[in-house]
Simulated scan of single mutants.
Amino acid sequence: MKATLNPRSLRETGTTPDYRFSLANERTFLAWLRTALALIGGGIAVAQFLDIGARKAIAVVLLVLGAVCALRAVAHWAACERAMRRKQDLPASRFPAVLVLLVTLGALGLILAVLTGRFAP
């Protein structure tokens, strides 16, 4: 499988799918990109405004997760586009479940910090 993200290279693969499927794939990509931007924005907000000792660690985790989400989004978009052009099943991905798990664990950790008073100004 080619690991290229070049649109011209993707167009040379297989046959052109129904444009509705390509547009749906693009909308999914954009949704993942919005998620990545939200994580990055959250990381910046934590770095600037949170007043706790773990501020930098939380900010770095959010920023890294945002970057990984953006990279995964474009890789999944290309893999789906390639599969559609080859008339193959769309690739399965564990990334959504992993992201949900990480965000949930992070939220639970922050809830615990709020309840124990670790967010005291």
Score class of each variant (00 low, 15 high):
38 A>R: 12
86 R>G: 05
4 T>V: 09
90 L>I: 06
96 P>D: 11
94 R>F: 12
21 F>Q: 02
119 F>Y: 08
45 A>Y: 14
93 S>Q: 14
87 K>I: 10
20 R>K: 03
30 L>W: 05
82 R>Q: 12
98 V>F: 08
67 A>D: 10
28 T>D: 04
3 A>P: 08
42 G>I: 00
84 M>R: 09
42 G>F: 04
15 T>E: 15
70 A>I: 00
47 A>V: 08
98 V>N: 03
62 L>S: 00
65 L>Y: 01
113 A>C: 09
15 T>A: 15
76 H>Y: 10
61 V>K: 07
33 L>Y: 12
95 F>Q: 06
87 K>L: 12
81 E>V: 13
70 A>C: 01
88 Q>E: 12
90 L>R: 04
121 P>T: 09
86 R>M: 10
88 Q>A: 08
63 L>R: 06
32 W>M: 05
32 W>V: 00
53 G>H: 05
96 P>Q: 14
1 M>W: 13
121 P>N: 09
70 A>N: 02
4 T>K: 08
80 C>A: 13
36 A>E: 00
7 P>V: 07
72 R>L: 03
15 T>L: 15
40 I>E: 07
97 A>H: 07
55 R>Y: 01
121 P>V: 11
11 R>H: 12
22 S>D: 04
84 M>W: 09
85 R>C: 05
78 A>C: 12
118 R>I: 07
41 G>C: 09
74 V>K: 04
30 L>F: 07
78 A>W: 07
101 L>C: 07
22 S>F: 00
13 T>V: 15
22 S>K: 03
101 L>E: 00
80 C>T: 11
12 E>V: 13
110 L>K: 03
84 M>Y: 10
45 A>I: 11
42 G>D: 04
9 S>L: 15
8 R>K: 13
76 H>V: 03
24 A>W: 02
6 N>K: 07
110 L>P: 11
28 T>K: 06
9 S>K: 13
34 R>L: 13
6 N>P: 03
116 T>M: 07
102 L>N: 00
111 I>A: 15
35 T>K: 06
58 I>S: 04
33 L>V: 15
115 L>A: 08
94 R>K: 14
51 D>E: 15
111 I>V: 15
33 L>D: 11
98 V>G: 07
82 R>W: 08
31 A>H: 09
84 M>T: 05
23 L>F: 08
119 F>M: 06
45 A>T: 14
3 A>W: 15
41 G>M: 04
96 P>S: 13
94 R>Q: 14
41 G>K: 06
43 G>M: 04
52 I>M: 10
49 F>S: 12
110 L>N: 11
58 I>G: 00
23 L>N: 02
73 A>K: 01
108 L>A: 14
14 G>H: 02
53 G>L: 05
36 A>H: 05
21 F>C: 03
96 P>T: 13
115 L>I: 07
78 A>V: 09
55 R>A: 04
40 I>H: 03
30 L>T: 09
88 Q>W: 06
118 R>W: 10
30 L>M: 10
41 G>Y: 08
28 T>M: 05
17 P>K: 00
18 D>E: 12
103 V>N: 01
77 W>H: 13
34 R>A: 14
81 E>H: 11
88 Q>I: 03
56 K>P: 11
28 T>Q: 06
54 A>W: 02
93 S>I: 11
58 I>Y: 01
35 T>W: 04
31 A>I: 09
119 F>V: 05
28 T>V: 05
41 G>E: 06
46 V>D: 01
85 R>Q: 06
39 L>K: 02
